[in-house]
Design a binder for these strands. Structure first.
Lengths: 208, 208, 208, 208
DNA sequence: TATGAATGAGTTTTCATTCAT
DNA sequence: AATGAATGAAAACTCATTCAT
């Protein structure tokens, strides 16, 4: 009991630091902030940060991996289902956009400091990032086999374009280049899927 | 004459440093390299770098702005023409992809260290980056007015998706996630325009 | 009884930590190890170390003083006896070398971290170290008075040379500069006494 | 010319820092002083120390090696000569004691922070230290072959005892355990050689 | 123009020690 | 007695930038 309580308290403190780090990383950027900023935000001494994490890098690694694993799991689940490709892609886009909606800071940190930081954490976590692309490519490949999607675009390319579109929209929100009303965010899910699946061309519309 | 020659020599030296900086920034990343690395690559003393540039930041600013102005000019020219939207977008995609083909390092630096570095140079140059989005949005808006493109996607969103797709493909090459053969690079231009205009959906194909 | 038992248990724990400290100090060096390394070696939480010792320094102080008192006592006893100077010196050398033989780690720690650490613990314990020199000098002085040893070397110098030779041999073993077989270690006792008393010179031999 | 002058100035500054480091290391001990203490003593900015040395450790390495190479050279020269063993050993003892006389700080640093620091620099420089022992052992071995010195003590042991005696005397001075008058220092050279060669025993005297 | 010596602010990390439980 | 979470002082090292030559 005591041990459990202690363990729980420790886990809570770790989470407290992690949450503070996300806030600070999102606000100031990973490089522009000091470990003491994170500690201050969490209201603890900065030595405690090193009690729970071995380095500043490890904090960001943890933030990224924790959330990215959820994403990978979600995509894998979606992929294994029988839904039409559009629905599958919409589920993935929804998950990511809802993640941003619920906790914009985490997604901002992940995108800005990891998946788009090609010379630092992006390189470190490239294998994990690649996994996501691969899983999305699987969704596309299966749909192509079933004749649901055009087969003249490689699944790899399609996955890149699809995930890229999502990340781009999130970036648009992060930079306030796009409106962030709940309606717009909801519509964006559909628009991304539409853009990727149907394109902008009126010919696509005409065909319907 | 002597003055012109001297000026020319100075310009050459400046260019020498700029080119060296691009190489080093691309190889090591802006933050991971030192001013002396740039000087070494250029074969000059690092004090000289400060004769031509006021700071390390200014070197990257220069690299970015020089090339970005060309891009803005190209898009503006394309926009002012009468070509069909697809051709206009293809011209823009071609210009960027050819830029990468001719000098991958510059584009890598611009994308990785500026346009995707939301917490550092991306923030500084946001207005300039926005200009490009705006110009592309103009292309889309005009095409929508003329009925060439679906009107149910906002021009802003379309511009974001289009430029995002291009950047994503370049990132794919930078990370070796996509093949970089001349044929693939050529095909990519078309595929980006297709994906954005027609989408992946077979309905689009059927309609043709 | 209960109190005694408790006291005994406490003394045992203290000894456990002390022994662990000796091992760790010998292996990693005093400065290169952390208090937690000592605790780990002892199999206790590092907070407990502070229950028995007021500081990391005090652990080393204790290790040193415990053993050094034994040495001082031994030398005083030897000094108070009537044996010939050679026998007295041999007893002292034997005691130290046997100490090393029985527990090399303690002697290594004492020599490396205290008696030869002129800028840290050597300075702190200089008075205690001096006592040993003084007692040895007494042995020499008495022997000189009785005509057993040459009087043209000051007792202080002789004591320094004698103890220095012993420490040097121990250092030779610690660094594996000298062989450590039981025979060699036994012979070393005699050789130290011989070297100091008779010297290397063949004239000394001739005289025998 | 300009280049030579600049090089010379740089060498002077480096020497300035080196001399300051010796002073500070001798006064406070290597571990107890900060790099800024060295810079302050030299009257230069903190960063300049790192312009000339890659680390605090490298400063001490340089101090040690510079002087130790002189010692090795001297012993090698002495060894190659034809003088009697006593004269050779006296030359070596003289060189070291004169070194201390001329610049006590350097020798203090070398002995306290390197040759007797078994767990840090002593370990790093063990090969170099061993070289000195080996060269002295050569002197002894040759003398034993020529019948000048007793052959029942191994050259290795004799070298250890001889160098150990010198270091012990220097330590005696460093700690003010022995008088440091010029006469005493001069006499010490002879006494060390005497003690090692003739020993303390009166039998040795009688034999003369 | 060109050099590289000189400056010093800034940050991560370590770890002895304290203390609540 | 025992635990280990919490604290924060301390110090090495980096590197952009300045400046004398």
């Amino acid at each position: 009991m005591a041990s459990t309580a202690r363990t729980q308290a420790a886990a809570d403190k770790r989470r407290l630091i992690l949450d503070a780090a996300v806030k600070v990383f999102a606000r100031q950027g990973f490089h522009a902030c000091r470990v003491s900023d994170v500690a201050d935000e969490a209201g603890v001494a900065y030595g405690l940060v090193y009690h729970y994490f071995s380095s500043k890098d490890e904090i960001l690694d943890t933030v990224f991996l924790e959330r990215w694993e959820l994403l990978l799991k979600l995509i894998a689940e979606v992929d294994s289902g029988d839904a039409p490709a559009r629905d599958k892609l919409r589920s993935i886009a929804s998950f990511i956009i809802d993640s941003y909606d619920n906790d914009p800071d985490v997604m901002k940190v992940i995108i800005v400091e990891v998946t788009r930081a090609a010379n630092s954490f992006g390189r470190t976590h490239l294998p994990k990032i690649r996994e996501a692309y691969q899983l999305i490519a699987d969704v596309v490949a299966k749909a192509q086999e079933r004749g649901e999607l055009r087969a003249d675009v490689t699944p790899d390319f399609a996955a890149l374009a699809f995930y890229g579109a999502i990340e781009q929209v999130l970036t648009g929100w992060i930079f306030a280049l796009l409106p962030q009303s709940p309606e717009y965010m909801e519509a964006a899910k559909e628009q991304i899927v539409d853009t990727i699946c149907d394109g902008l061309d009126v010919i696509g519309l005409r065909a319907t």
